[in-house]
């Protein structure tokens, strides 16, 4: 049946068709602006960052410390018992060297996003952040890194209170 179908429907257009006015079109934007409540756990996480501390939370039933903190353990569905201040050091779980921005502008020097397993949290529990002060070619999985904080006066209670992570030892 389908092997005999020669033409499938669909009308491809080129950018030129738009530019030359061959077809009609219009633009619009959603313009969605939001103010999200930070909530209990993330609110406290942000307050911790303002104090220069990365906060996790712990479920003693599952013996698990997670970061960022949350109020409920998704494994056992019991409330988390306590906030746990973690270290501001960690291990690179994975990284990328990114040469484009979200709007596809090219970057000469790559951004280096990474998942960093934070010391004091359970194994494989990390956060996403950026690496700097490092030769992109020398970044590796397993590398030890440390947070570089903004000064206490500059911190506002945001993930960007940590400017970036850098290697513990110079590479």
């Amino acid at each position: 049946m389908t092997e005999n179908i020669r033409s499938f429907p669909g009308t491809p257009l080129s950018e030129q068709d738009f530019e030359e006015g061959k077809i009609l079109f219009n633009y619009d934007e959603l313009n969605g602006k939001f103010s999200w409540d930070t909530g209990i756990a993330i609110g406290s996480y942000l307050a911790g960052l303002k104090n220069g501390v990365i906060l996790g939370s712990r479920c003693s039933t599952c013996r698990k410390t997670v970061v960022p903190p949350r109020t409920v353990c998704e494994w056992c569905f019991r409330p988390m018992q306590e906030y746990v201040p973690l270290h501001d050091t960690g291990t690179v779980n994975t990284f990328s060297l990114c040469y484009v921005t979200w709007d596809m502008k090219r970057l000469t020097d790559p951004q280096i996003p990474a998942v960093i397993e934070i010391d004091g949290a359970s194994p494989l529990h990390g956060i996403m952040h950026l690496l700097k002060e490092v030769d992109p070619q020398k970044v590796h999985i397993g590398m030890r890194v440390k947070a570089v904080w903004k000064s206490a006066e500059e911190r506002t209670g945001a993930i960007t209170d940590i400017q970036y992570f850098k290697p513990v030892k110079e590479v």
Binding site: W36, T38, I127, M128, L130, I159
Partner: peptide
């Protein structure tokens, strides 16, 4: 939106 987007991800 709070803990990751401020880093400018794509």
């Amino acid at each position: 939106h709070t803990t990751e987007r401020p880093l400018g991800p794509n």
